[in-house]
């Protein structure tokens, strides 16, 4: 079985099958690039991911492992994208996988899934963040995401008004 070494930003190396790694759009491209530039077709590719630390990379690979037999989702759904109607096949395994994570880890995971082009993981993590927004008040959202209001004066009220369909004359 052809293997690939994937190395995290803090130097941890993960040895995974190329078949598995290729489920990540980014890793697939990297492996193919390596193949083209290498004379030895038997050589084991080594890919450094400088933006993702070991803990997060492990999670991504773990998720890929679990979902290795899923159909690959198209990364670009631009043509027929639908707001809020993405069909999410979130399994029990996914729920258990995400359950212990705090929001910080989830955010890192989103960045990683985006960087490595793993659509399915990106979707479930984004969905999780979305669930932290749904039904919350503005202040609760700010607290959850540690954001501060930077509106000046009545800009906030203005945002509300401008978004009404019909403005009074």
């Amino acid at each position: 079985m052809a293997l690939v070494r994937v190395i995290s930003s803090d130097g941890a190396a993960f040895l995974v099958s190329q078949r598995l790694a290729k489920r990540s759009g980014k890793l697939k491209t990297e492996i193919e690039t390596f193949r083209k530039s290498s004379d030895n077709s038997e050589a084991q590719p080594e890919i450094r991911i400088v933006t993702i630390r070991a803990e997060i990379l492990r999670l991504v690979l773990q998720w890929l492992q679990q979902h290795q037999n899923d159909p690959v989702l198209p990364a670009n759904q631009n043509e027929q994208d639908g707001r809020g109607d993405a069909e999410m096949g979130q399994s029990q395994w996914d729920r258990d996988f995400l359950a212990p994570m705090d929001l910080g880890i989830v955010m890192e995971l989103i960045l990683a899934a985006n960087h490595l082009e793993v659509k399915g993981l990106l979707d479930i993590t984004c969905k999780l963040v979305e669930s932290k927004i749904t039904g919350r008040t503005v202040d609760e959202i700010r607290t959850a995401f540690k954001l501060k209001s930077d509106f000046k004066g009545n800009e906030e009220e203005q945002t509300r008004l401008e978004n009404r369909w019909c403005v009074e004359n």
Binding site: R136, K148, D150, R160
Partner: peptide, 10 residues
């Protein structure tokens, strides 16, 4: 929710 998000920050 979308309207609320608009009010969170710039």
């Amino acid at each position: 929710d979308l309207i609320n998000c608009r009010k969170v920050c710039l």
